[in-house]
Design a binder for these strands. Structure first.
Length: 151
DNA sequence: GCCAACGTTGGC
DNA sequence: GCCAACGTTGGC
């Protein structure tokens, strides 16, 4: 059982979108970064929990919690030529990219980036480090508990 | 395998 | 829209 933080741009796919999906569950597709791919493919397990983070928006921060529904499987959008996430280098026999399914668990009143930075116990979180570009990062159990205690 | 150029991310 | 940071690409 592991904890994660998953970033998404709310204009593209925010937590409000997730809540309108059937079973409030969606594929987390479109990851095109190898470090994140490796985590989705190798490390994510059914039952893991993740914070849902809104980035590249007026109020960046944690807005909710999701549960991981399955281990990673090949990203089907990479195989569809007309899709925005199409990647001709990804083949069905040797997929380049992976997804997991995530299910909505709960909302938070926004825990802003600024608020996260105010807690020394969270200072090591990758999402707070400058230059961080990973859309998925690990959260330690201590960090998870600390963030939950904020709401 | 080096490294410069380029593209993307994401807070501000 | 700026710009720092850093991943990716491709020539050599």
């Amino acid at each position: 059982m592991q904890y994660w933080l998953m970033k998404s741009e709310p204009a593209t796919f925010g937590i409000e979108h997730l809540k309108t999906c059937p079973q409030r569950t969606s594929m987390w597709d479109g990851v095109r970064n190898y470090q994140v791919r490796n985590m989705l493919r190798d490390d994510f397990k059914k039952g893991d929990l993740a914070f849902f983070y809104h980035s590249s928006c007026p109020a960046p921060g944690i807005v909710g919690m999701v549960e991981i529904c399955c281990t990673g499987y090949p990203d089907p959008t990479a195989f569809i030529p007309s899709h925005d996430h199409y990647d001709p280098k990804s083949r069905r026999e040797s997929p380049s990219w992976y997804v997991v399914d995530v299910k909505f668990k709960r909302d938070f009143e926004l825990i802003s980036l600024d608020e996260l930075r105010q807690h020394a116990a969270l200072a090591d979180m990758q999402v707070l480090k400058r230059g961080n570009r990973l859309s998925v990062t690990r959260i330690s159990p201590e960090e998870w508990t600390c963030i939950l205690s904020l709401r």
